[in-house]
Nucleic acid binder design. Structure first.
Lengths: 232, 232
DNA sequence: TCCATAGTGATCGTATACGATTTCGTACTT
DNA sequence: AAGTACGAAATCGTATACGATCACTATGGA
């Protein structure tokens, strides 16, 4: 349930064509296979092959690929074709930095709109994450982490910013099951920072403080990854 | 010269298909007509008509429209068609707020990379803006304003953030010759703030200060507009 | 007079078809 | 043996064609 909630929420603002559209179906299908890992980074996306596989013509598939390109999930080269976008460490860095900025802003903007029940829900999710630490279930932990942050930024009144946050999370999702996702010591700190962030919002701290905290929380994850990468 | 410089710089990261592509030509053509004002907001973009006009088939035109949709310049409804995106005051507000955030970040990130010659160039542009104030040439003023800020954020090392800034400016460009663009008293203050921003960067201020200043500069424009709107 | 409904025109969505470009393999030359 | 040039297969880009969907209008009945 929590999974589908977030997955559904992470949808484009205006680009959400009617579900009946084959373009849309193709888009969903290909995207699913990318984040799920069926199409690994570097995988060559051949229009004809995908079209035959889905039972469509190439035209809707083509459109779907272009949409995925705009989101940065696939790279495209004229007269050559599309490939699943790389897990390039540099890309990861850029994506995380961008997300730290837009998510920080989104969280700050939605903070005043978060009521007590939402806070409680977030806290419950965070507690579940704490439990996850002991049973060591990275997949579930990642999912809960997304849920947690969704609760915090989803009330952001500016749809553009919200869309940017969704895109950032989308790209991160496509890196699933890659080496990036989990940095050993980081998870524990992360849970603590979540609680601190909740307290900050509860106390009605000003937007600037919330933004800074949210941004720092993500930057810390990035820094932890960089520190780890240095060792290898 | 300055005009073409910026216009060229404002291009998508990955979506830049080869210039020979008809999709690309159609994209450029339609976009040009939108920002230039030939297609006013609300104008109905009929695929067949545009295709006939450009001498292409509808397929590349369709793709171009979808790209413009992703950038928010046109709205699209399935089985109905595309229209030039509105000058909705709310949209303007959202766009400006988003831009204030990403442009602030971009400016802060590129600040350390701006050398003395770039500063000088920016200052020259700003002086030209000051002259413009007296001759009252809004079109040129707007262009110079874009040039000025381009110099400041174009060195941003994170291409994603840079792309977001470009998209924001693009959307603003499509509002040209609409009532938004010019708020009477604002222009003068704007020039002064530009100079202050330059001094801040020159002095090697930390990223946080630069970001805050750049963001505030844009927010101030937004606030000025809102204050004016209140009166009408 | 107003509302419901069927018909018509316009436009979009998708399939199929063909020309253009690239890439890879093979044969030939040095 | 290595490099180059040629050719064929694969794939993309675009045109054309047709079916599907929607908006609008006119006509009939309440």
């Amino acid at each position: 349930m929590t999974e589908s909630t977030v997955t559904t929420a992470v949808a484009d603002i205006a680009a959400a064509a009617a579900p009946g559209s084959k373009s849309e179906q193709a888009y969903q299908a290909v995207k699913a296979r990318i984040v799920e890992g069926t199409y690994t980074p570097g995988y060559r996306l051949v229009l004809g092959a995908i079209a035959k596989d889905l039972g469509f013509s190439v035209v809707p598939v083509r459109e779907a690929i272009r949409r995925l390109e705009a989101e940065g999930l696939v790279k495209f080269e004229r007269n050559v074709g599309a490939t699943v976008a790389g897990i390039d460490p540099t890309e990861y860095l850029y994506t995380m930095q961008t997300l730290s900025i837009v998510e920080g802003a989104a969280t700050a903007l939605s903070a005043p709109l978060i009521d007590a029940v939402a806070i409680a829900r977030a806290r419950a999710v965070n507690e579940e994450m704490r439990e996850c630490l002991e049973h060591f279930n990275p997949v579930r932990f990642t999912q809960l982490n997304q849920d947690f942050h969704s609760i915090l930024f989803e009330h952001c009144p500016n749809p553009h910013i919200l869309d940017l946050v969704h895109r950032g999370w989308n790209r991160l999702a496509s890196l699933r099951s890659s080496t990036f996702r989990f940095v050993p010591g980081r998870a524990h700190d992360s849970v603590d920072e979540h609680e601190a962030l909740l307290k900050l919002i509860e106390s009605g701290a000003d937007a600037d403080a919330v933004e800074k905290a949210a941004r720092l929380h993500r930057s810390a994850t990035l820094d932890a990854y960089l520190a780890q990468a240095q060792h290898h």
